[in-house]
Design a protein around this nucleic acid. Structure first.
Lengths: 217, 217
DNA sequence: AGTGTTTTGTACCATATTGAACAATATTTA
DNA sequence: TAAATATTGTTCAATATGGTACAAAACACT
């Protein structure tokens, strides 16, 4: 059997776990936003001291951009897995929005919305790097939705004349709205009602009844 | 004729115009966000020195909350004026979204999106006062849309079985999406396509053709 | 044990930021 | 012209923040 244990690195071992520290830094940014989170906050959140933070992740902006990238990649992977499933469109979209909402409304603590819309949007106007990553992330989600809707159209799940790109725009808009409204403190009931309405509208006349009378809080 | 000139106040006259200073402070926040805007930035933007800023508007948060309030009131007034017009729903919605987009994409300078979603959303998770005002503002817009859609239904502009609250949710979602995507740097063409799609979808089967084939960038 | 290597943790510096104190200034009123 | 009043502009203190230098610590290798 091949030796699969890596040779341990030379010097003093790290006192932190890189993945865990990144997640903790992300949560700190997620709560307070980029500008309002200081290196001291990040130090406290990760348990690392500042020199270690700089050595491991560069300065605050580098770390933040890295976290944006990771969030986008993870979201795209989760979406890809879900959209590859051989499930009805309505069910897939329901799971898609429910998964997002679970992320936006954690069990404990204040509602936080989406990491991208909750923290990157405010920086985007003044910071081109953040703006670029944000747009890349958002349009990636939209394209994934469009591919799934195209498949739904090709397989006869929605009307043959439906425009996948147009419907993906609406489906994305609902996601953006959930992200904003969740962080704004809107109720879970109201957000779920929006999800129901959106799915009814997107999935077409077969589901039109739901679109008309989704329960509202 | 009654004397309508106010008696001038006692001491040294103000060197600034209050309304103008508020607008300049708002634009500073709008560009960089709340946390990234310092009192010095506000001082530079308004031309006032910091002691005058404190005397006139209180601390940074007080000033910001005041600006949120004014933005919400102004938007509600503009919406009320527009929605009172005796115009077809599709035309009203078109003007509504175009007006928003003009605000989000100024002629000069980087795209800025909506003042609420662009600056208040990031603060909302950690700041209950901002969160409350944000939710109030957003749900006010949604209610105005709902009233207009109810009128459209009652007057036969859209199907009698349509649910105004549900459609208002979608119409709001599109507004939120425009706000986010504009600040993220998405193209004017793409945003206009989303507007067309949304209006086609909301206004129902009479406009269904537009919903299917709105041009995409 | 001793040496080299990497990380940690303390200490430090320069600057940014908030907030207020206070004298100077510009105006109205007596 | 003098007094009262309100704002301006300078100055200052206290703290926050970003970023780094450097010695101590913890490991691998010889």
């Amino acid at each position: 059997m091949v030796q699969n244990t890596q040779p341990r690195p030379r010097g003093r071992p790290r006192a932190y776990d890189r993945q865990q520290a990144l997640a903790q830094a992300r949560d700190a940014f997620w709560q307070a936003g980029f500008a309002a989170t200081s290196m001291d906050d990040l130090s406290a959140a990760t348990g690392m001291n500042r020199p270690s933070l700089y050595a491991a992740f560069g300065d605050k902006q580098q770390l933040y951009l890295e976290l944006l990238e990771r969030y986008i990649v993870a979201a795209n992977q989760a979406i890809a897995v879900e959209f590859e499933q051989d499930q009805p469109l309505a069910r897939t979209l329901t799971r898609f929005y429910r998964y997002a909402l679970a992320l936006y409304l954690p069990e404990e603590g204040p509602p936080r919305g989406c990491f991208l819309t909750g923290t990157a949007v405010s920086e985007a106007a003044a910071n081109p790097q953040v703006r670029e990553k944000l747009l890349t992330g958002l349009s990636g989600f939209t394209r994934a939705l469009e591919r799934r809707l195209r498949r739904a159209r090709d397989e006869g799940e929605i009307e043959a004349q439906a425009d996948p790109a147009a419907l993906a725009d609406i489906a994305s808009a609902v996601l953006h709205s959930l992200a904003v409204r969740a962080r704004a403190g809107d109720s879970r009931v109201a957000l779920n009602a929006t999800i129901k309405t959106a799915i009814g509208l997107i999935c077409g006349s077969a589901q039109r009844r739901n679109a008309r009378r989704a329960s509202h809080a």
